[in-house]
Design a protein around this nucleic acid. Structure first.
Lengths: 186, 186
DNA sequence: CTCTTATATAGGACTTGTCTGTTATTATAC
DNA sequence: GTATAATAACAGACAAGTCCTATATAAGAG
């Protein structure tokens, strides 16, 4: 489970609550390579404390609801270091849109072009979000840390560019084929 | 569930057994965008027949074990067409290796370079498998079908090139930093 | 003569992740 | 005055996918 190790890494940098992990990390800093559901974060924190990887400290606040701040134990540190050294396989790639493209022979040119246009818009939006992450990434950590943070973001940006280039190329190709009157179902 | 719709699409092209779906499709033709577990394929076929999307025909063979050939019903065709027209969101990207890179500040240069090297090898192997798919893709279907099949494969190849370019760039960067004696933990 | 591979199907247990709903307080917007 | 958003935590139910195992036959390798 990489979620467990992502949490260990994040809490090593800074002890936090489940709420902060969700909002400051999984929804922003590391959103480009590991999103996590709120319920899953809380459940994982609870089980990790049970495993002795984390300790928690309940802080009663006067103006806000009480919060539970988690920190990494020595066992947690050891577990993280061990995992960071293990080779990881790339994830299995599963893309519903490619299933649609593969069977797009059953759709008209107009229908598949609409899907392509929608994906162009989604990927452009993702790309512009990534450019927003780029700036706050410089506020903490050593120079070497920031190098690796930038490295992850750079892949995210490069992948989005690849998607966009592919989408725009085929948008063009299908439009041209459509005009020259090849069998287009549309 | 895209698996269900991938099965509907594949069985529309050619009625098949679960075994053939696994070996001829999910492990080869469409492996670059949708892999599926054998047990999951059989379970899904069974539930889809229960939903009336498929019919099956048990063929007793003399020289091999009996097999069950599945075909798409009219309801299945309608379901597929409907799904193909619905917009799909891109999948959530989750990459364990990027978790390692993000926290690579805790590793030595040698350790992270070893991971990078391993990923370069995996992605080169994937890329060469994709080039093998490219040729058999021309044996069936209309010209328009093959256009879309090629479109899916082209994304797979482009994504692998992006990974490799990124890996090789950072391999170089980290090696150079290591030699110039910046704080490398190694 | 035994072992492995290919053909063919399927169950059990489990992990990971998703979606929805609940509870509670304070601050802000309309 | 009322509604919504932010802060804070967590349970229930489910969906999707993984891993391991069982069963059976036949062909081919050693």
């Amino acid at each position: 489970m990489s979620l467990k190790h992502a949490i260990l890494g994040l809490l090593t940098i800074q002890p936090m609550t489940g709420y902060d992990l969700k909002h400051l990390a999984f929804d922003s800093t590391i959103a480009h390579f590991w999103r996590a559901d709120q319920a899953q974060i809380y459940r994982t924190l609870d089980s990790m404390e049970g495993e002795g990887l984390l300790t928690s400290d309940l802080r009663i606040q006067s103006e806000r609801p009480s919060k539970r701040v988690y920190a990494v134990t020595e066992a947690g540190q050891a577990e993280l270091l061990d995992w960071l050294r293990q080779p990881q396989s790339p994830p299995v790639y599963r893309e519903p849109f490619l299933v649609q493209v593969f069977f797009a022979g059953m759709l008209t040119d107009a229908e598949i072009l609409a899907h392509i246009q929608a994906h162009i818009e989604v990927h452009r939006a993702t790309l512009s979000q990534y450019h927003d992450i780029a700036i706050p990434a410089h506020d903490d950590g050593t120079e070497r840390d920031r190098l690796f943070w930038g490295m992850t973001l750079e892949l995210g940006i490069a992948l989005e560019h690849t998607y966009l280039a592919w989408l725009e190329k085929w948008q063009q190709t299908i439009r041209e084929r459509s005009l020259t009157g090849d069998d287009s179902l549309g």
